[in-house]
Design a protein around this nucleic acid. Structure first.
Lengths: 215, 215, 215, 215
DNA sequence: GATGAATGAGGGTTCATTCAT
DNA sequence: CATGAATGAACCCTCATTCAT
């Protein structure tokens, strides 16, 4: 008798599937969703058309898997960052910085999340929206928690500004030729500064005093 | 016989071209670039394939025209808004608000500029980038002009945050069901507040009164 | 100015369409629906994939067109045959004979109607059923009109026997090697004899008298 | 150790094979040959692709097995029916009725024999033809035996009419919604009546009484 | 014997683009 | 200038079949 599925087989399957996902990530990021063909992914993976459709229902579904995976990794980063701080403000700053560092370290994933997912059907764009919106919701929640100022009439808007600032800054950074990009850490702290100020919390001590503000 | 080209013919040509552009705008915004086919545009325009390729080199080129046009209209709005104010800060605020009001009033154009252009090749994405970057450059310039704070090490980053906040807020607003969208004006002022604060210029307690603004 | 559609163009279109239909008829009859590919039809027609899908929504639709056309031609034959006779019995006989002669003269069409259409989806099998059933209904009507015997409890059954006899005889005839097929006319009269007797009307004079029947 | 093949193994093999055949029968009848995939059969049988190809050379071969089996069962029914009667005419009537009752009681098998087999290659259509032809030959033989009338010039034709009537009637019956089908027995006797008349043997006025039948 | 992952030829179909009319 | 019929490369996907485990 032979095992229904041996652990070894299981491992090989996982590996193949992963290879397809990884190759697809690179191709999607480099050439875009539409210019990446299934034959391409298959060829670069050293796999076959049949294998592709054994692992994924179709090209769109593969992309969706990718996106969900990225969403989870991002969420994981954010949770970790937040768990590392006690104060809400420090948490928000940490989250921004961690997110930017993560995206900068994983540019292909960043491109897929920020750019490619934007215009695709089949629940992809809405999954992207879900991910971004969930960030915005966290920001909004924090915003409500810490605000000393009178709250904006519509904190959701500020929250989306926050998210937009983060992702657009990353987009800008990714668009720069790799040779003269500023260090990701600087982008991270700059964006954090912009956003914290944006919600009324100038991050550094000396900036906190209103009388030192521009006048 | 007739002149090589009569003024009347000129006018009709222009009209046809315009109709194609307008129909395409709507279709691209509604269905996305890839799901909009040339036959569709042609059919809805009451035109013909031949006409299409007489006026535009190809589908991509049509989209590019659209995008450039939108870019110009947006720039026009910004210039007008800026021209209406004297003080740099007031100009920045005015620009943000005008831009948001314009995009909210022209959602199809907004979708094309913000979403559809993002993932297209053939110089489209780079044209989009150029439009957004030119906004960012204006912001950066203004930023350098007004800042009394120690400038951020990299003002370009703050500038891109600014732009990202604007466009992402609009994107959020567009994604809401039209029935329960907040008034565009509120979005405009909220984003302006966020951004001005982001660059270190929080409006004074009573935000509305110009005399209390940082100056 | 040029005509929207010139008569000449119209004729060329009709011709092309016809050529595709004709080639498809032959291929479907020879190789069956599933083993006939669109590229095959296109190649033999000296046409192109694009042209194929310009004229027909898809392969199935082409087949359906074919089937409907055959159905109409058959109906035309039947109507002609019936119109040529006054007495119901003579009409029935004429219809059977004409139908058989027609099918024998158009074996490809016969194969498509009798065989290929049987197992196809997309409304094809039901169209076939429609055609055969309409024959059966005519037979049933005639049956009710002429019957002197006590009518069968369920004349629809006899009617379908009639139709089955006709088509199965043709199928048998088509399956014979062309070299030793009996003349179609003989098949026609033999089937007519079988069917008329089947409904209680021995066709020949000497057979009509019951006392002369087999005993 | 174990015997090369124990009786128990034999039995399990037979059972598996049977299960594949049975599931395939149902699927072929319900969805048609082409829309039934090997994975489907395998999944519904709780078996595996490998097992499938252990028991059958390929999909076509499985179908052929099915068809041969059905052919044998039908032949068995016919033989039984004939054995139960002495007089040729009674035998012919009994055969028709038994056949119809059998097909009505086994609609999946009927569909496979009558419909699905019609358009398949690989010797399937010809096997179907053989089955039907063998019925026709029996009919023809009986026809020659009993006929007192001048024989038709081509008794094979009448024989095929006979067969066509039977199968087409069943096909008609199968196509009716199960809710308002006439009883199979009525179809059987109606078809028998039609066919016996068709070959010149009308049952006497009171059809049911055997002593009044032509003899 | 049994499994199911892997193969890949080949299918139908789409659509941007061309060009004879 | 205008038309729309015609092109064909290229796509995504299916599924019968094989074979390493």
């Amino acid at each position: 008798m032979v095992y229904r599925t041996t652990p070894r087989m299981e491992r090989r399957k996982a590996k193949r599937r992963r290879r397809l996902l990884d190759v697809a990530t690179r191709l999607f990021a480099d050439r875009g969703y539409h210019k990446t063909t299934v034959p391409m992914i298959v060829a670069e993976s050293g796999s076959s058309t049949g294998a592709f459709y054994f692992y994924f229902a179709n090209k769109e579904e593969l992309f969706l898997q990718l996106l969900l995976e990225i969403g989870e990794r991002v969420a994981g980063q954010l949770n970790e960052a937040i768990a590392g701080e006690k104060e809400p403000l420090a948490q928000m700053r940490a989250a921004v910085e961690r997110l930017i560092l993560f995206l900068a370290a994983n540019p292909a994933e960043a491109r897929i999340l920020i750019l490619e997912a934007t215009t695709l059907g089949g629940g992809i764009a809405s999954t992207q929206a879900e991910i971004l919106t969930s960030h915005a919701r966290s920001v909004e929640k924090a915003l409500r928690a810490i605000s000393e100022d009178p709250l904006p009439e519509d904190p959701a808007i500020a929250a989306h500004c926050w998210v937009g600032a983060v992702y657009h800054a990353v987009r800008y950074w990714l668009a720069l030729p790799a040779s003269n990009r500023p260090p990701a850490a600087r982008v991270a702290s700059e964006v954090a500064r912009f956003n914290l100020r944006g919600i009324g919390h100038p991050p550094a001590r000396e900036e906190r005093r209103p009388d030192q503000r521009s006048e």
